[in-house]
Every structure is written in C-alpha cells, then in structure tokens.
C-alpha cells in the first residue's frame, strides 16, 4: 500500500538558518501548492463537500402546510431541529431494516471473501495450469451491473420462467421458491456474492503475486506442503489486502440497494424499506419527504464511518505493522 514514501521531506532536517535564507523565494512560492491542489479541492468541494453539507442542512429542515395545502404559498419550509432524526430512528421499519442488512452482511461478507480467497490461492498455486481463462471468468460477473444481474437472477428465481426449476424438476428434486420469505435473504445475498467475488479475488490474487518467490521456495525446501504454504505464509502476508477487501465489503453491505430494489416488484417478500437505503429512497422519492431522507442518510453515513474507521483502528496495528 504505502510502498512509496512521498519525497518532499527533505526540509525536515534543514537548519533554521537555511530556512531563513530561503524565506523570500518561499513566500513568493507559497501559493504554488494551492494551485496544484486547486482542481482536486474545487471538485471535492463542489461534488462531495457541498452535497454532504446540503444534506446535513436539509436534515434539519421540514415543510409545514397550512389549511388544505392546496393552491399557491400554502407550503413553507422551516427549521425542524432534530425532529427528522427522531422520526427516522423511531420509524418501526428502520431497525428491522438494519438487522436485515446485518444478517445479509453475515451471509455475504464471509462467503464472498472466503470464496475469493480460495479462488485466489488456487489460481496462485496452479498459476501455469489454469491460466487467465479461469481468472477472467471469475472476474466477469463483476463487470455486470447490479441491476442487470438482479434482473437475470430474478428470472432464474421465478419458478415458472426458471430453467433451474425445470432442471431440478427433471431430476424430481423440488426447487425452493427463492423469493419466498424464508429464502429471499439468501436470494439477494447470492446475487451480491456472485457479483462481488471476482473483484475481491483479483485484489487478493494481485497481492499474492507480489509475494517474493524466495519465501515460498524456502518454505518448500523446508518441506512445507501447498496447504502449509498457503496457511503459514500467503494468508498472513495477505492480511492487509484482506482487511481492505473486508472494509470495502462492509461498506457495500451497508449500501445494498440495487439488488433488492430490482427484485422488489417480482415478489411479495421485499418491502419498500427492506434495507436502510431503500427507506431513504422511499422517503425522498416516493413520499416526497427529502428532509427525513436526508436525516436517515446522515445517520447511515455516520454509522458507515464509525464502523469502517473503528474496524481499521481495531485491526490496523496488527494488519499493517510490517509496514510501519
């Protein structure tokens, strides 16, 4: 990760006298870094900081209607204090959606990372035999947009149009109704695993390729088996990459939206508030209440930050100590 240490550290050891001598040209050049930073700063402000600030502002506002609410000027926007937050957190649909996503994450993250790690290790171990084809075919689902993937899987889940059901019926195995309430969480998780494994596999595989061959050769000479090499050498060295893919997967889990949203009209089992982000979408665009949607978004953003930052703090020292 931080293989290259940034160069402009040369002034750290410079004497005060040397600094003073350079003061005049330096003060003229003081604007230079800002000029270089300007494009990034402008883009960051316009497209990230400003929208976040606006969302935070909206979360403190609300609309009040007078009378029947018909006709001009019957709606005014006003300060709402924290009432949007209170309403969003006390919504009976909010906590169930959070637990649902937690359960979904418990399925998706370990499965996806486990399969990705296994694939990466297998590919790395048999590098010459399997070749690029397996790599590409595992990675390919990642290139399919989530909405398209969900539509494809949606067809496969519906018994009447699914070739899988026909196949199972031919072998006289009763096919589970994937969109029924007992299976729907697995149905959605399956799409995420299918789509996400390839990406994580590539990240881990690339990290594996970076392991110096001498270490592995030394282990082999010492008589270590392939499994021992994987368990004692490759996985420990992979730890930083595993941490990174874990954080990415965690964030993706908290933001799960496209899959359940696309499957929703196909079944009775996915509600409009199935995940927290779907609730944000419903509040903003179905209920026309962007204020409460903004409040939920802020809560979600803070939770995402706390979770990923907390996790990095927790594992940071252990995962990255070899680079400090």
């Amino acid at each position: 990760m931080t293989l290259l240490s940034p160069t402009p550290r040369s002034t750290v050891g410079a004497s005060p006298a040397a600094l003073a001598a350079r003061a005049t040209p330096r003060s003229r050049r003081v604007g230079v870094p800002y000029t270089f930073l300007a494009p990034a700063l402008i883009l960051f402000t316009l497209f990230l900081a400003a929208p976040i600030g606006y969302a935070a502002y909206l979360s403190l506002r609300r609309v009040r209607v007078t009378g029947l609410g018909l006709g001009a000027k019957s709606r005014v926007e006003q300060w709402a204090g924290l009432s949007n937050y209170a309403r969003s957190l006390s919504d009976p649909e909010f906590l169930p959606s959070v637990w649902r996503v937690a359960a979904y994450g418990m399925i998706v993250v370990p499965t996806m990372l486990g399969v990705a790690l296994l694939m990466a290790l297998l590919l790395d171990a048999g590098r010459s035999r399997v070749g690029g084809f397996a790599r590409i075919s595992i990675f390919l689902p990642y290139a399919v947009p989530a909405v398209v993937a969900s539509l494809l899987w949606g067809f496969l889940y519906l018994p009447r149009v699914s070739p899988i059901t026909d196949l199972l019926a031919a072998m006289s195995i009763p096919a589970p109704e994937m969109l029924s309430s007992s299976w729907v969480l697995w149905a959605v998780a399956n799409i995420a695993v299918w789509g996400g494994t390839g990406f994580n596999m590539i990240v881990l595989y690339t990290a594996l390729r970076a392991i110096p061959t001498e270490i592995k050769e030394a282990a082999r000479i010492d008589g270590a088996s392939d499994i021992a090499v994987a368990w004692r050498i490759k996985i420990p060295i992979l730890l930083p990459s595993l941490v990174m893919t874990f954080v990415f997967s965690l964030i993706a889990t908290l933001q799960v939206f496209a899959e359940p949203m696309t499957l929703r009209p196909l079944s009775n089992t996915i509600s409009t508030t199935w995940t927290p982000l779907m609730k944000v979408y419903r509040d903003a665009f179905t209920r026309n209440d962007i204020y409460s949607a903004a409040a939920t978004s802020v809560v979600l953003a803070v939770a995402t930050f706390v979770l990923s930052y907390g996790f990095l703090k927790l594992v940071g020292r252990r995962a990255f100590n070899q680079e400090d």
Binding site: G154, V161, P265, L266, N268
Partner: peptide
C-alpha cells in the same frame, strides 16, 4: 393466486 401482476412469471 397471491403473486404480483406484471412480473415475467
């Protein structure tokens, strides 16, 4: 039936 309308099914 109890299934939604306008699905492929």
């Amino acid at each position: 039936d109890n299934k939604p309308m306008y699905t492929p099914e």
